[in-house]
């Protein structure tokens, strides 16, 4: 029993050390962001500011418009999450609870889109958005990515487990189809909504290539695009770049930690259903 205890302690300690190594970049990013300019140009590297200062954050928010970029990111990710949950759950509901001509064919076609990488459509989508006047708009970021075959699949699977009797009795009570969806299905599919909601929000917040293509006016920049741009002009300002990274990463990390359980269970459900 005692040997087992020692083994358990050693293994846990070893894994904890590895976890610390994995997390060091985050730790270094955060402490460096509170240093004054130039303080991190030192060897050996410094891990703790001599005096904590908000100097870098002041520059970011006062001079470099990071609040605007933050709000853009937040607006795009929120709108995308709402639109995508609505559109995909509606389709998932139809596939789960209705029989109609072409159902199997349409569903398979949706799934088949997952085989083709997004980059293939990017050039024409750019031209289409230009034609529609949607470059440099939130909608230009949201509409092309709102439909997700994975989400539709996920909703269909989840809603299939909800008893159809509920719908039948609601219908007898004179409930219309949309009201059945809105007042019965959606509340019951809450776990699926939460899981896919986090996936979508995180994915949109972190997305880089598509915003980089669609946005060329700096008033519309999302955080990753703003940060990449900042790298072009302020690469030597390590402390400033770290503050920019903190502003980009930390909100999403907090969200993840808060909703970790739903995120992880969705991740695993997604892989098992493949």
């Amino acid at each position: 029993m005692k040997r087992r205890g020692i083994k358990s302690f050693t293994l846990t300690a070893a894994l904890a050390v590895v976890a610390l190594v994995v997390l060091i970049p985050f730790f270094w990013m955060i402490t460096t962001s509170f240093m004054k300019s130039g303080e991190s140009f030192a060897y050996p590297p410094v891990f703790w500011p001599k005096r904590f200062t908000l100097e870098q954050y002041t520059i970011l928010f006062k001079r470099l418009h990071f609040l605007r970029d933050f709000l853009n990111s937040f607006a795009v990710a929120s709108l995308m999450t709402i639109c995508s949950l609505f559109i995909n759950s509606l389709a998932g509901f139809a596939f789960a609870k209705y029989t109609f001509k072409g159902r199997k064919f349409i569903f398979t076609s949706f799934l088949a889109t997952m085989v083709i990488p997004a980059q293939v459509g990017m050039l024409p989508v750019f031209l289409i958005l230009r034609q529609l006047g949607m470059l440099n708009t939130y909608w230009g970021l949201i509409l092309p990515g709102a439909v997700s075959a994975f989400s539709i699949f996920f909703f269909r699977q989840y809603m299939s487990t909800i008893p159809t009797d509920l719908i039948d009795s609601a219908r007898i009570d004179g409930c219309g189809d949309f009201r059945i969806y809105w007042q019965i299905m959606l509340p019951l599919a809450r776990p699926a909504l939460v899981t896919l909601g986090i996936f979508t929000f995180l994915g949109t917040w972190n997305d880089f290539m598509w915003p980089l293509i669609v946005l060329n006016r700096d008033t519309m920049y999302t955080l990753p695009v703003a940060l990449a741009n900042l790298m072009g002009e302020h690469a030597p300002d390590t402390e400033l770049m770290m503050a920019g990274s903190v502003v980009t990463v930390i909100p999403i990390m907090i969200l993840f930690l808060a909703l970790q359980k739903s995120y992880m269970s969705g991740l695993i459900a997604g892989s098992l259903k493949e």
Binding site: N206, L227, V249, Y263
Partner: peptide, 30 residues
């Protein structure tokens, strides 16, 4: 034998949810 599994798991998972652009910037300085 391992204790504190869920904490360790979250630690290892943290880079996955982090914004790719931001951590690329951090690693450039590393």
């Amino acid at each position: 034998l391992v204790r504190f599994k869920s904490v360790l798991r979250v630690g290892y998972f943290a880079p996955v949810v982090a914004t790719l652009v931001a951590v690329s910037v951090v690693w450039k300085y590393i």
